[in-house]
Nucleic acid binder design. Structure first.
Lengths: 140, 140
DNA sequence: GTTTATGCAAATTCTTTGCAATACT
DNA sequence: AGTATTGCAAAGAATTTGCATAAAC
């Protein structure tokens, strides 16, 4: 069988394309915003929690997805849309709505690069805004 | 008995100064960096976890402390050193070391204010950097 | 056939709540 | 007295691990 798009993405990130991983990647792409482990469990209900957990860890390690701690109690994830490892200049900002609990990727808002103090080695930046999203603001 | 400094701080933030709250505020001030609920439990070992938990929530509500999700599994907190509610322009950046697990306040690095998309109401910003701290970098 | 990945079940960790007892005003 | 706070014990929620089976190469 010919290589599908998902297999290709996995290989690009040096991840062995197994059935579970392809299915999960496919599932992740269907989410508009960010997703949690529980979201994936619901969508891909043939898979076990622990397999999803380990797959998420693997994908994060290989820079196929971003990890977002939004303080909601459950870790959120979103696909990284760069082919290779994410450079800091390309990272985008996330928005967590305190009313509906959703977390959005603000894809076109880049993380501002600032002067960091000497001595620290920067590997990753999480820029998370909390507040009310447009939908929740318009409701009263 | 005359008003001590901790009582004064609590009153400024419209928090009733009880014995537990004064003790916790005092304990929090002794931490150089950020602290977790477990850290407070160890330091103030006469107090119960649930009292600490509720005090943290109260202090956060009244903008006496910042809540930091650093992805370490445990929520971190740090005292807010402004007298009043924290304006976004005054918020500072945090650094989480992936080696030693400590989270630092970079007090003199302010959160850069950027153009946010229309429609979102910004209430709070968490700018968290992950990487290696100076101490862990110098160890080999 | 050997290595790697997965599912199941259970353990761990951190957070949160109900309720009775205590302290404050 | 009446309200707000605290401690104890237990529940909840999310994450993580051990181990036996199954899949991949």
């Amino acid at each position: 069988m010919s290589e599908n798009r998902f297999e290709e993405i996995l290989r690009q990130h040096e991840i062995r394309p197994t059935a579970v991983r392809i299915l999960l990647l496919e599932t992740m792409e269907r989410f508009e915003n960010t997703f949690s482990l529980a979201d994936l469990e619901t969508e891909a209900d043939t898979l076990d929690k622990s397999s999803i957990f380990r797959t998420l860890a693997l994908f994060a390690q290989h820079h196929l997805l971003h990890v977002i701690e939004d303080g909601s109690g459950a870790t959120k994830y979103c696909l990284c849309h760069n082919d290779h490892a994410c450079r800091i200049e390309e990272m985008h900002v996330h928005f967590h709505c305190e009313i509906c609990g959703k977390t959005f990727c603000l894809d076109n808002v880049h993380v501002p690069v600032i002067r960091y103090p000497e001595g620290y080695e920067v590997r990753e930046i999480n820029y998370l805004i909390k507040g009310r999203c447009p939908a929740c603001r318009s409701k009263r």
